[in-house]
Design a binder for these strands. Structure first.
Lengths: 151, 151
DNA sequence: CTTGACTCTGTAGCCGCTACAGGGTTTTTA
DNA sequence: TAAAAACCCTGTAGCGGCTACAGAGTCAAG
């Protein structure tokens, strides 16, 4: 099968497949005489694996690790469990951060319960207050609320 | 004051300030004879405003909108309220998405409660299952869990 | 033999920075 | 007075994970 067919079967864009090959997640395949990439069902499975992982918001690096386990079927999968635990912890932390962010935003929102002149807007005034140094970690806060365009 | 002093006062990196100027969030300033940028307290306030907004995970575009309100102190601030409401809704949606993601991950995690051979790992096997087309929105899912490096 | 659908490579853009390289200026120290 | 250190400048490239071209080649159907 050619790249377009693989794309359809794994609900992926053609460019994304080439990108994954370039990134080392998909192997370089055989080519036809006309230099077209040739795929089979195993590629569909591997690409599905990757897309499933992406759907769970894993990074390509995390997926690389998982693929290494998948490629060594005789070895122990303890690392898989560990990676998943770490990823769950990661998501949990992000949820907490976003919840705290939401509380801050709601508090700020109350500073201007109704429309008035901008110079009297409690929101704008609070936002002008001086920043404090980030207490714990580096600048960080939430990060990536805008990761993907909205539906 | 020079750029380094402004950076300190607003807990920002020097490069970030130049980036904001280039991005049109900070005005182009006067220069010394030696071509150094010169700032005053108003710049500290404006930069603090921006950093506060970034700390609330607003995009630079959202901040541009808010700055336009701040720059027109006589106009109505209704748009500020609306922008904040939209941003809160945005964050709320993201939290929901991440929570659903977390549930999926926890379910997946149960597929392999203990280390075994990779070929028998329920996690790896589930991940290999074929992807389904995204039902509602385009590919999207959570996006940006890895937005910022971990603390 | 032309049209159209498919494929190829390579590059640029998105966001919000960050980190250089390779220079110039100003202040401090010896 | 000179050298070293600290600061500043511009411009460019990189991060992740794609997406969207441009400009070309390949292949099947009419």
């Amino acid at each position: 099968m050619q790249i377009g067919e693989l794309a359809k079967r794994a609900y992926t864009q053609v460019e994304t497949i080439r990108y994954y090959e370039h990134a080392g997640l998909l192997p370089e395949t055989a080519r036809t005489e006309g230099n077209y990439r040739v795929y089979d069902d195993q590629h569909v499975e591997r690409l599905s694996f990757i897309r499933n992982c992406r759907g769970l918001d894993m990074s390509l690096n995390e997926i690389r690790v998982l693929l290494r386990f998948a490629d060594a079927p005789g070895a122990s999968c303890a690392g898989v469990d560990a990676l998943l635990d770490a990823h769950i912890a990661h998501v949990t932390r992000r949820i907490k951060t976003l919840q705290s962010l939401k509380r801050q935003l709601q508090r700020l929102r109350k500073a201007c319960p109704e429309a008035r002149e901008a110079r009297q807007c409690g929101i704008l005034n609070e936002l002008s207050a001086h920043v404090r140094p980030m207490p714990g970690a580096p600048a960080q806060h939430a990060g990536g609320t805008h990761g993907i365009r909205d539906a």
